[in-house]
Amino acid sequence: MQDLGSAFMAAIALVRDGDAGMLAILGLSLRVSLAALGIAAVVGLPLGALLAVARFPGRRAVVVALNALMGLPPVVAGLLIYLLLSRSGPLGHWGLLFTPGAMVIAQAVLITPILAALSRGVLEALWEEYAEALRSFGAGPWRAVPTLLWDGRFALLTVLLAGFGRASAEVGAVILVGGNIEGFTRTMTTAIALETSKGDLPLALALGLVLMVIVLGVNALAQGLRDVALRRAG
């Protein structure tokens, strides 16, 4: 109980003092997760939409694989990317290992299947409603993809938030490929892991509280924007 109390006090102090080190770490966390979310959205959402509309042999297998990949252990994803980006690996000449770019890739790889699988579910329901009308307008599956993505935008926002949540909470992959380098690749989650291993549990918990508040804020902001847009656009 005493630890929890001092964690709360420490969290408040961190925010109140605008601790520069923490703000830099927080900024990096948000930038990395948002960049990963952007990449994953560009790949995952159209993929999900395509799976919602297209009927081809092996589609079921792809859907099952995608659902399974949602549970991909971060450490496994991190390890794969580590081996790819290592100087001894096939993409070693990119020089991305132990950089924020590597963390972006790792998070993007982790959440792309999440965005694809969840958006497939959301858009399949929409497609069921739209399919006849769109075909009547002469739109094939390829043309239906952007239409579904746009018309499903409010439901997809929730999907994006799920992806963002997973990305910003992730530690196993980013610590592997980012290296947790102070001032360079240290994110909120890797800082929490570090403070935990230094035995400064109140500080670790305080950082965790700050992260939760930020993620909560991002969610509230997105939901607020969604509500306003929904009222205006239906």
Partner: peptide, 26 residues
């Protein structure tokens, strides 16, 4: 030709955007 369904399938967009969508496709 064109078709109207028993239960109208309207896109989640403005009235005007609904009108323009099939014309753009056509």
């Amino acid at each position: 030709g064109a078709m109207v369904f028993q239960r109208p399938v309207l896109l989640r967009r403005s009235v005007l955007a609904n009108l323009r969508y099939p014309m753009a496709l056509a």
